[in-house]
Simulated scan of single mutants.
Amino acid sequence: MIGVALLGIIRRWHFHHQVPLREIARRLGISRNTVRRHLRAETTGPSYTERRSSSVLDKHSV
């Protein structure tokens, strides 16, 4: 999985510095398809699922 910092680098190089996808992939050592997929994604960061388990303190909360 790609981290937030790496995603920021990819987006900055592509949108601000107009670095080609192939060059971004070569510099970072990742696949061109990975670079393309993250640039096409609408989200700018990872999404996490909501926690479903109950807390130990839930029974004491009012």
Score class of each variant (00 low, 15 high):
16 H>C: 10
16 H>G: 01
29 G>H: 08
59 K>D: 06
60 H>L: 14
32 R>G: 00
27 R>K: 14
41 A>P: 00
5 A>M: 12
53 S>P: 01
19 V>N: 00
55 S>G: 12
52 R>A: 11
10 I>A: 00
54 S>G: 13
29 G>I: 10
8 G>I: 05
33 N>H: 10
34 T>K: 06
16 H>I: 09
26 R>I: 05
52 R>H: 06
8 G>T: 03
2 I>S: 01
29 G>V: 09
12 R>A: 15
14 H>I: 04
12 R>M: 12
49 T>N: 10
40 R>A: 09
48 Y>F: 14
50 E>P: 00
40 R>I: 07
35 V>F: 03
55 S>W: 02
20 P>H: 06
39 L>G: 01
43 T>S: 15
31 S>K: 06
27 R>A: 06
6 L>F: 03
38 H>E: 08
10 I>V: 15
35 V>G: 01
3 G>Y: 04
25 A>Y: 05
44 T>C: 07
33 N>A: 12
54 S>H: 14
51 R>Y: 10
8 G>S: 09
53 S>K: 11
55 S>F: 03
1 M>D: 10
21 L>I: 15
18 Q>M: 07
2 I>Q: 02
13 W>M: 13
26 R>Y: 07
18 Q>K: 15
38 H>S: 03
13 W>D: 01
30 I>K: 01
37 R>V: 10
2 I>H: 00
20 P>G: 05
42 E>Y: 04
31 S>L: 11
59 K>N: 07
51 R>F: 08
45 G>M: 06
39 L>P: 02
16 H>M: 11
33 N>Y: 07
58 D>W: 00
61 S>L: 14
48 Y>I: 09
55 S>C: 10
38 H>G: 00
20 P>Y: 05
20 P>Q: 04
30 I>Y: 02
41 A>Q: 13
5 A>T: 13
45 G>C: 12
43 T>E: 15
38 H>M: 09
16 H>R: 12
23 E>K: 11
45 G>P: 00
11 R>Y: 05
7 L>E: 04
51 R>I: 12
16 H>E: 15
37 R>K: 13
23 E>N: 03
21 L>T: 14
56 V>K: 13
1 M>W: 05
33 N>I: 09
22 R>G: 01
12 R>S: 11
9 I>S: 02
30 I>N: 01
12 R>L: 11
37 R>S: 15
11 R>I: 08
4 V>G: 03
54 S>D: 09
35 V>I: 12
26 R>T: 10
23 E>C: 04
38 H>I: 10
6 L>W: 00
7 L>R: 14
52 R>Y: 02
1 M>C: 06
11 R>F: 09
49 T>A: 08
58 D>R: 05
57 L>H: 07
30 I>V: 15
32 R>A: 05
8 G>C: 06
4 V>S: 10
20 P>L: 06
41 A>S: 15
6 L>R: 10
36 R>A: 04
40 R>Y: 08
38 H>P: 01
